[in-house]
Structure formats: structure tokens, C-alpha cells
Design a protein around this nucleic acid. Structure first.
Lengths: 197, 197
DNA sequence: GAGCAAAACGGACCACAGTCCACTTCTATT
DNA sequence: AATAGAAGTGGACTGTGGTCCGTTTTGCTC
């Protein structure tokens, strides 16, 4: 019995078994290397060596260093999206839109700070980071819509998302020495002003 | 007669003559290479070769590739700051604060888009890009203060500046296909909401 | 002008991301 | 079970950013 037949994944051309195994081995090795040496300490050579595969394999699987980092980010990102879609309020559905928006901002700020190194290292990867951004953007637009905000919703959503980007957060916390709480409070203020119109 | 004595530049330890000459030669060569091959086409080796100096010299002068790009950006950035400080209104002084703020946003959006490649390539350089950001931030805070905005002015300034960053602009124009005019109008709307409180 | 210390120079050298392709391993088909 | 060809593999190779250090230039002092 071939269990792949039970999951007829339409779209992505099914991955061969050795390839899938290597992907798994590589992801685990990468995770461990990140833990030991930090994101910057993970080189593609070291990863290949540690996983016991050739360098070509690493690139074939992930396309680039950024692609690898994006793959590492995948799990936590998926979890987070699940929280937004079907988790408990106020982040998940059930709370009034404004509360959801505020919860969204704080949550995203926290995860972006937590995974800052990985997110920066994943910059430039095709697909995944765009998808992550796209999800957040869609969600914010949706909430702004529910709140009856007038104007160019797409642009206002971008305006709310932009200050949560890692580059900006890094600058604020590292260079300007602000703490996360202050930034979070400031973002909530911004959100209220944008919604109030 | 030693003309350096006529300009007693306090602070920066004076640069030796050969060093100054090489800096000039390198900047001109870099400018030309950017024009011919685009920013991405400028390699440090090619630049060194074209300028007729060793590679070590390039790095000694500019520290890194990002530093070189920052130096290239310097002229236009300085010009722009002059416009803000002492140019004609509404960008320069003389116009009401809100008009100045709107002019600021539009102008910064335009220059950031114009020099997008250079700005991205200059990312990571020490000092210069931070100084540029810092100037803009100070200016926006000043205007928000004049407008009597209440709240965490520093954070609100960041919130206004963030959507003007090249990464964001790139995403909007390239991926989402928005035109600059729409983005500019959206920013003006954002600014009004922030100021209105 | 001679001497000297500091600054600048240049190019060999290193590390790392990413490419290439001859070779191996899978898997669908018969 | 045999087979063909698609998919995957590995490691030598390339290009580029960045470092290092022995040599050269500069400009100050006497």
C-alpha cells in the first residue's frame, strides 16, 4: 500500500522518498545548528556536512540560504496563522474587530522580535516570506473592513504592517533603546488613529 | 602654502593626500560603473581594477560594499537635506506644518524610489544610513510637535517613516503593482489620520 | 635634504553562497 | 523481476565580499 495515494496532493509534484528524507534530515540539522551557533553561524557547507549530504543537495532542496531559513520559519509561522484563523480570542475569531486588531499587532510584534534573526536571514527567499506577509496583510484588511474604515484599505493595512517589520523593530530596540512594551503601546495608538480616521 | 591649514576641520583626523585622491578616483569610477552596469553589477574587484588601485584600498576607504554605496548616496542625500532645511516651501521652511509634512512624505517617497537600488545596497553600512534616517526622524518629530500632536511622538514619527522605506515601497510597486501616485496619496491620508488623532 | 613614524597601499589569501554535471537511486510500467 | 528515464546526489568549481601583512608613500621634524 502506498500512502501517498491517500493524500492526492494536487499541484505540487510529489517529492521522491529519498528527497523527503534528506529534507527532514537537513531541517533537523539546521535547527540544531541554529541552536548551537546562531543563525549567522549556519553555513551551507557546515549544514551539508553535518547532515551527511552533499552541498548540491542542500541547494536543490531549498534553493538558497534564504530559502532554507524560510523553511525553518515555516513551522512557527504556520502555528501563528492557525492561532489567527481558529485560535482563542482576542487573536482568533470571536472578539470585536478592534480588539482583534490590537491583539494582532502585539502578537506579530512579539513573534517578529522572537524570530528576528531567522526572518532577516530568510529575506530574499521566493514565495514563503511573501506568503507570510500576504496572510498578515489580508487579515488586517479584513479587520479594517469590518471596522468600517474608509479610504484605501490596502494602503492603510500596509501602513499598519510596516512598523512591525523586523528592520524597523530592530532599529527601535537596538539603536533607539526602546523596550518592546513601549513599541507595542505606540502601535496600538497608531492603530486607533488609523481606524478613527 | 598648505590649504589644509585654511580649513581646520576639527573632529575628523585629516586624510592624507594620496588617500583623498584615491577616494575621489574610486567614487568617480564607482559612479561610472553604476551607470554602466547598474548597482548590482558593481563588484569591488572590478571597481578596484577600474580605478587602478588594489582591492585593499577600496576596503580601507569605504569599509565595505555597503559603505561604498552609502558614500555614493551621500551627495544626493545632502542635497535633499538642504532642501528640507533651507529650500523653498512647502518642503523647506515657511509653509504651515501640515503642508510641510505632506511635502516631506511625497519628496521622500520619490527620492527613495529613485535611489532604491543604491539605498538597498547601502544597507548595513555604519553611520551614514543611520544619520540619514535620523535626520528624517528628527524632522518629522519636529513637525508633529508643531502640529500639537499628542502621544509618543518618536513612535508616531517612526510609524510615518516606516511605509516610506524602500523594502515596503518595492513590495507595493513591484509585487502589488501600485503606482507611486496611489502610494503617495495613501501616505497623505495616513499622515492626516495620525495628526488628527 | 635626511630620517622617521604613521598612514596608505596592493594583491595574495580566506570563507561562503551558489552552479554544474557526471553519476547514482528511485519508481512507474510492463 | 527487468527496465528506462526521471529525479536526486555530491563535490569540484566559480565569483564575490572581506582580511592580512609585507612594502611603499607621505609629510612632519630637525
Amino acid at each position: 500500500m502506498d500512502e501517498r495515494c491517500l493524500l492526492p496532493v494536487l499541484g505540487q509534484p510529489t517529492e521522491r522518498r529519498d528527497a523527503a528524507r534528506n529534507r527532514q534530515v537537513l531541517l533537523e540539522a539546521a535547527h540544531e545548528l541554529v541552536g548551537r551557533c546562531g543563525v549567522d553561524g549556519v553555513t551551507m557547507d557546515a549544514l551539508a556536512h553535518r547532515a551527511g549530504v552533499g552541498k548540491g543537495t542542500v541547494f536543490r532542496r531549498f534553493g538558497s540560504r534564504a530559502g532554507l531559513m524560510a523553511a525553518l520559519l515555516n513551522h512557527s509561522e504556520t502555528d501563528w496563522q492557525a492561532q489567527v484563523i481558529s485560535g482563542p480570542p482576542p487573536l482568533g475569531p470571536g472578539a470585536p474587530p478592534m480588539e482583534r486588531l490590537l491583539a494582532f499587532g502585539r502578537s506579530r510584534l512579539e513573534t517578529n522580535l522572537t524570530h528576528a534573526d531567522l526572518i532577516e536571514a530568510a529575506d530574499g527567499a521566493v514565495g514563503r516570506p511573501y506568503a507570510a506577509y500576504s496572510f498578515a496583510a489580508t487579515h488586517v484588511r479584513h479587520l479594517l473592513g469590518e471596522l468600517g474604515v474608509r479610504g484605501d484599505i490596502a494602503l492603510l493595512a500596509t501602513a499598519l504592517l510596516a512598523p512591525l517589520e523586523v528592520v524597523i523593530l530592530r532599529h527601535q530596540t537596538t539603536i533607539e533603546g526602546m523596550d518592546a512594551e513601549r513599541v507595542a503601546a505606540g502601535w496600538a495608538d497608531l492603530a486607533r488613529r488609523v481606524v478613527a480616521g
